[in-house]
Each structure stands twice: as C-alpha cells, then as structure tokens.
Design a protein around this nucleic acid. Structure first.
Lengths: 210, 210
DNA sequence: GGTTGTGAACCACTTCACAGCC
DNA sequence: GGCTGTGAAGTGGTTCACAACC
C-alpha cells in the first residue's frame, strides 16, 4: 500500500477493536471476518480492513482474521505489549475511583503513583499506592513513569500539566474541565464527563407528555 | 443561510464553547471576538462562526459576541435551560464518584435516582439519593427522568440499557466497556476510560533512556 | 477599520467495488 | 466461492476569503 498518514480516527478505533477481540477470544472464537466483526461494532467492514491495512496485511482472503494473532498485532501497533506505569494526580472522588478501577489492567496500565496537595491525604495509602505531595511530581522523571491522569479541579489543571511536562511525561489523560496547552511531543486526551452529558438533551425529542 | 444538516461535531463543540463562555463571564468579560475565542479553545475562528451560524446570527460585525447573550443562546440550543433529572445505574467506585461529582450542576443536571443490584447497597443513602433495586428501573417512566448514566460492569450493560429504553429514557451516558444497541430515538454517548488511555502510548515517542 | 456570516474551495475520512488470493 | 486489501469515488466537515455590516 502506498504511504498514507494514519488518521487519528483510526488510532481511536484500534483500542475498540482490541476490546472486542478480547471478548471474542474469551468466547473461544478462533477466526473472525471483517463483515461480522464490523456488525458487532456497528461500523462499516471496509473501515476495519482499511484501518488495519495502514499497518500491514493481517488477514487471509477467503477466510478472515485469526483472533489471537490480530489481538497481538494490535497490541504491538498500539505499543501495549509492556506494562505502562501511570501517575495519578488528584485523589478526590474521581481520582479515588480511578485508583481502584480494574479496567486499566487489561491494557497493561498500572497506577503506581498518586499525588495530591491536601495535607490530610498526603501519606495515606490507597490501593497500595501512597499519596505524595504534588511538589514531588518532578521525581516522576527518574521513576520510569511516562503517563499521567489529571483528576484535579480546573483551576489547578494547567499548573499540574506544566509540571508533568517538565517531569518528562509524554501522555496525559485529562479529566479536568480545562483546555491544556502542551508541547507537540506530549499527547493530551481530555475527557469532560459533564460536557458529554450536556450533548444528550439536544438529541432528545421533546415529548409533550411527562 | 441555506439549510444544512447540522454536523454531530458541531453539537459536540457547543458545550465546550459554553464551558469557556462561563469562564469568560466569571472573569467579567462582556464581549469576545471569534478570533480570541478560537485561540483560547485551540480551534479555527471560522469553525466557531460556522458552528454558530447553523443556528442563527448571534454576533455583531466589527464588534464580536456578547458573552452573556451567547451563553444564553447556547443553553437554549442545547436544551439546557431547564433542570434535567438523571438516573445513575451502578453504584460502585465510579458510580459513587459520579454521585458526588459537582460538575453536572453547571449544565443543569441533577442525579435524583440511583440503582444497583447489590442487596448490601440497596436502601443505603448517598449524597441524598437512596439506592434502589435495579428491578425498579421501570418506575423511571413516571418520575420525569429522561437521562441515565450507566456505570455497571460490561456484562450487565446491555440488559440495563434495554430496561432503560423500556422505561422511556431518551439519552444514555455509558461508562461500561460495551457497545450498546438501542433504537434510533435514544442517543447513547459512550466513554471508556481505559480505551482512551490505551490511545496514548501510540503517540509516545519511544525514548531510549529510562 | 474591523469583525461577522457564508458560499466556495479544500481536505480528509469513509465507503465502494473489484482485482487478487486462498 | 468468498473474503481480504486497496485504488478510486464519494461524502462531509473544515478552512478560506470576501461581501456585508457595524
């Protein structure tokens, strides 16, 4: 295939494919065709084949894809073959929930550090992680931690992001309702739960009966 | 302007504009020009003008937009002028965090009901909300609740979604790692935190030094 | 003079459709 | 025969650029 820039949209879908393949694998499925796979994800089958084709030819014409093999390939493409250490900043309600969230493990993520600015929380242990003072964020550089989750109030997020960048973090998952400005080499993915919720009413047909 | 179907992408950005306008309003700003507004959000200024133009002409040539007026217009477009009651299904770690999350209020959302299948949780009170048995989901129909948040394990999500649809819910914010199939009249927005995190390593330049 | 609102141009992603292969 | 991989066509969102307006 000729060279093509790989769309961000494609990268966004690959983890979804991975999630579904895991499910198929657990169900004992050996093979899957792009058509059936697409149906279960609610996308077009050509979309899946095209997405995969950016990275090589993983299937067999007339047969389909081997579930386990494709699973490994996707992990490799997404650089999920090794365990990734993650730092959590902000141990409030949301941060605490994230600390005990089991869903990260399946993609090889492990929260190994937690930070907060509240003296009452610093030093406490949650899910085997000791909460450290945010002034210690610079130590991440020497601890092999490249990813961070921001779960602090909007007012503090920009400052935290700056410190994370200085500490050599290359990827940030941001839950603060704030637009973060970072150098190009750092990737930020922002999730604002309230904003996602705020999109729903628009689509809701106004019904006259209550 | 001629008729145009309004892109989903536009609807996705409007709450972001709303969030930023709130900030500007709090700072006492009276007016904002699309150029400055765009810069603060990291988007193109024509994008903002085009997004708004789908709904009417809200600005003044040569001057810009009145912050408070635009704020009201956006609330109106997004149907956020009234309080929206929300039901939460799944009172685990994430669900509990969502119950005490203060960010929903600014868009007029209020979690007024919570459901779980765990007998130990049913009947308990959290954030002034009594946890009910999931078998009571059908009562939502008569309680004026049109939106729901799913925060249950993937294995239970499909079943819960079906029950929510039957109970007249028109919008779902889904945190379960599962593709939900619902009638067209129901809008689902899915957030899978682990999947968003799983996109980060791909973008991370592999550095040789640890 | 400066900014909005918007048709037109542009660009990028999606879908089609079929050659190639099993 | 059936499905993959992919160039080509289609589609839709983004950006340009400027007329209209304050």
């Amino acid at each position: 295939m000729k060279y093509h820039r790989i769309p961000d949209e494609t990268i966004g879908r690959l983890p979804l494919y991975l999630r579904e393949l895991r499910l198929l694998s657990q169900q004992g499925r050996q093979n899957i065709k792009s058509g059936e796979f697409a149906d279960s994800l609610g996308v077009n089958s050509a979309q899946i084949r095209k997405d995969l084709s950016y990275f090589g030819a993983f299937g067999t014409p007339g047969v389909g894809y081997k579930v386990k093999k494709l699973l490994r390939q996707l992990c490799s493409i997404l650089k999920l073959k090794n365990i990734h250490k993650v730092a959590l900043v902000g141990v409030g309600n949301l941060g605490s929930a994230l600390l005990s969230y089991s869903g990260f493990a399946q993609f090889g993520f492990e929260i190994v550090a937690a930070f907060d600015s509240d003296p009452n929380k610093i030093g406490s242990i949650r899910n085997n992680v000791t909460v450290e003072d945010t002034s210690k964020l610079s130590t991440l550089k020497n601890r092999g931690i490249k990813f961070a989750i921001i779960a602090v109030p909007a007012s503090a997020a920009k400052e935290i992001a700056d410190q994370l960048v200085k500490a050599g973090i290359t990827g940030i998952l941001n839950f603060a309702p704030s637009c973060l400005v970072v150098p190009k080499k750092v990737k930020v993915i922002s999730i604002d739960i309230a904003i996602d919720l705020a999109r729903l009413p628009y689509y809701s047909r106004v019904t006259l009966n209550k």
